[in-house]
Design a protein around this nucleic acid. Structure first.
Length: 137
DNA sequence: GCCAACGTTGGC
DNA sequence: GCCAACGTTGGC
């Protein structure tokens, strides 16, 4: 199983909406590196939901429930989307500011490639973050 | 094929 | 609101 981090601006698509819907389509990704990550996802992989811009924190965990398929929001070209379902809400969200202070998370893609909206998370990082936010790894 | 200009993302 | 990072576009 692989681990990922997906970013969304909460005023566009917040965690609360995903929870209310029970399942969501992760579309609109228009960056090639992010696209490759979407295509590498397997059903059953896990991902963090990160609120960018507002909040700047990891707010919950998700499961990939449908592997990459053509993005229905794309006018042309081969962009892809996946479907996700919420797993656990963070008992205590982990902010970007906190992530920067933790040595075990210093290598995160989130810090190095701040603009990448779909990025991989190392297993050790996944475990450390789950512990911090109070959800089962 | 190079590179300057420009647009977008996202943190501050 | 500003700015850094970085991807894309277009002139040459």
């Amino acid at each position: 199983m692989k681990y990922w981090l997906l970013k969304s601006e909460p005023d566009v698509y917040p965690w609360s909406k995903l929870v209310a819907d029970g399942r969501g389509k992760w579309d609109g990704v228009r960056n090639h590196t992010a696209k490759l990550n979407l295509q590498a996802m397997k059903k059953g992989d896990r991902a963090f939901f990160y609120h960018s811009n507002i909040g700047k924190e990891i707010v919950g965990t998700m499961e990939i429930v449908r592997e990459a398929y053509p993005d229905t929001s794309a006018e042309k070209g081969a962009w892809f989307m996946v479907d996700v379902a919420p797993l656990k809400e963070a008992a205590k969200p982990l902010t970007l500011a906190e992530i920067k202070t933790l040595p075990e998370l210093a290598g995160m893609a989130l810090l190095k490639y701040s603009r990448l909206s779909v990025q991989p998370v190392a297993p050790a990082e996944w475990k450390a973050i789950c512990k911090r936010i109070g959800v089962p790894a």
